[in-house]
């Protein structure tokens, strides 16, 4: 994972936990130096409820945690090494 850069995460699905049992799942479109996230196709989950919210900016101060699925992380890493392999 350590070889990955922020730009590698662009386009991948992040699971962002906010306060009070609120989770936003969306694909990362942009991130700034303060780690304010811009997510697209956001799905909000609260309890058992789920709804879509489109393009959402998530300020760093609201973020409790950012998670990514293991398979997706594997894919990211695999792509990265493949790419590096090609260069080498």
């Amino acid at each position: 994972m350590d070889a990955l850069k922020l730009s590698d995460f662009i386009g991948s699905t992040l699971i962002v936990s906010l306060a009070e049992d609120r989770i936003l799942i969306g694909s990362l479109v942009a991130v700034d130096a303060q780690m304010n996230l811009l997510l697209d196709h956001v799905e909000e989950r609260i309890g058992s409820g789920s709804r879509m919210m489109g393009l959402v900016s998530v300020p760093r101060r609201s973020v409790q945690s950012i998670k990514i699925t293991k398979p997706m992380l594997r894919d990211l890493a695999a792509n990265k090494f493949e790419l590096m392999g090609n260069i080498v």
Binding site: M1, L4, K5, L6, S7, F9, I10, I15, A30, V31, D32, A33, Q34, M35, V63, Q64, S65, I66, K67, I68, T69, K70, L73
Partner: peptide
């Protein structure tokens, strides 16, 4: 799931303030 919060924090802190990835 893998928690990448700290990893993100670390990567962002290395960005120049004016950068947007």
């Amino acid at each position: 799931l893998v928690d990448v919060t700290c990893f993100f924090d670390e990567l962002c802190s290395k960005l120049k303030p004016e950068t947007i990835v």
